[in-house]
Amino acid sequence: MGELRIQGLTAAVAGRQILNGVDLVVKSGEVHAVMGPNGAGKSTLSHVLMGKPGYTVTGGSVMIDGVDLLALPTYERAKAGLFLAMQYPVEVPGVSLEELLTEALSAQGRDASVVHTAVAAEAERIGLATRLLDRPVNVDLSGGEKKRNETMQLAVLRPKFAILDELDSGLDVDALRACSRRVEAATTEFDLGVLAITHYSRLLEELKPDVVHVLAQGRIVSSGGPELADELERTGYAEWVEEEAPAPAADPFADPFADPFA
């Protein structure tokens, strides 16, 4: 049984500290939901885990089965078993889906001859129209099609752990059901561990979380069972959003016409 272990993770973007010590342990086959207000650092967490350029880790550690992910370049993190379904999947003109998956599997020393059939089978299962499979990756796909495409790639690549960054945004009800069911099935099919970042509990109707966490101000501020998701839906995140910082002492040189609310 594997685990994704995040300990005391702190990270900065553009010189600003966004993650302030994240602790999370996801075991194979488990689903952990991470919920939180806009700007809490959820996408930042997903990017830092995958090693996106521009994010600086300032402390802490991330391990998959004892492998230190933070020491690895992005593609080796994928090889170690991590997958990120992006909130905004990137269009890559001129690169086909099959090319991408073939290169991904071969680089990991895995059998790439299965790509064509695996893609066809998964696309059918997730309800991604086959005519879209010949397009360059994500090019001219709708928001919903992109998310189905992310899910399809996840299913073909069969990682150990998947981070889903707002997989539910931009999805209609049918697509949401198809994608969340596919991921849920993966947790038993290949023992996938899931870190599902979401705003809303509707993703979690089909993708049943074992644990729900609240991320606010760059750290996990609360964890609980599935009932926490419903509670958050009702009450919102006000409880965890910090009070406004006290106003700084008046600056004698300040512009008297400046907008005080800026």
Partner: peptide, 10 residues
């Protein structure tokens, strides 16, 4: 980054 995140070397 997108391609790398799928496991394709840089």
């Amino acid at each position: 980054f997108y391609l790398e995140s799928r496991g394709v070397p840089t």
